[in-house]
Amino acid sequence: MTSRLRIRLTSIGLPALVFAIFLVVWQVATSALRIPQYILPSPADLVSAFDRVSKTFPYDLWVTSIEAASGFALGSVGGFLLALCFARYAMVEKSLMPYVIAMKTVPIVAIAPLLVIWLGAGLMPKIILSALICFFPVLISTVKGLKEVDPDQIDLFRSLAATDWQLFKWLRFPSCMVYLFPSLRISIVFAVIGAIVAEFASANAGLGFKIMLASFHVDTSAMFVYIIACALLSLILYGIVAFAERFAVPWSYSERTRGDL
């Protein structure tokens, strides 16, 4: 067995073992200590709860995924475009940047109930809330990325008498990708949070909505199922963005992994 393979096996195998032990301890503890199901359901309770909700579960998962993904797309594209506009028109940046910085510190989820009043109980308020949360980190990191270009690289372009447009498309734009992706990875997680909080405010489907519903019925097992589903959804969406990053900015990815090892 090569050492590389052994490292692989232990890096997957050990955490899996820990998880298995955790499940066993959880199961044994809940039955041995007679913890009531509405306080802490056992793993077996979760399995049966999942079985109970399995009919509607795919639809709720779908709704929340769509809300988060659309909000993410809308917010990050919007943030990116406004950043380009900032980079192009210094006056626009000068006048708006203080507000952008201020908005970054505002807990945007607080406006969820307001969005429900304005936009109703459908998908719209969830998408808008997710989009708003994604918007600011993407905007700020893109602005930063477009600015913080290696001054030597700029000198290289200037020494070749490059036009502003050439400088933008062949230098500023690609070098800002390295800043953009970390903020996209954060944003996709924020987008899921936004969708769930907006569902708390008012909804008729979705994982967040089902968590609320289960809490009204003190159906703790079902709550656990939906909470775990939210966590997994967030993890998977994050994985997709991180995977895309490997293809979009392979140079940054390879630098990072080289640094880690």
Binding site: Q153, D155, L156, M177
Partner: peptide, 28 residues
């Protein structure tokens, strides 16, 4: 474009491969 500079560090663009880096001046 009568001057070319070789800097202390190789200032290559990491998102381009070797040939694409070399072609930058012609593209510009």
């Amino acid at each position: 474009r009568r001057i070319a500079i070789l800097f202390q560090r190789p200032i290559l663009l990491p998102w381009r491969n070797v040939l694409e880096n070399v072609l930058l001046p012609s593209q510009i």
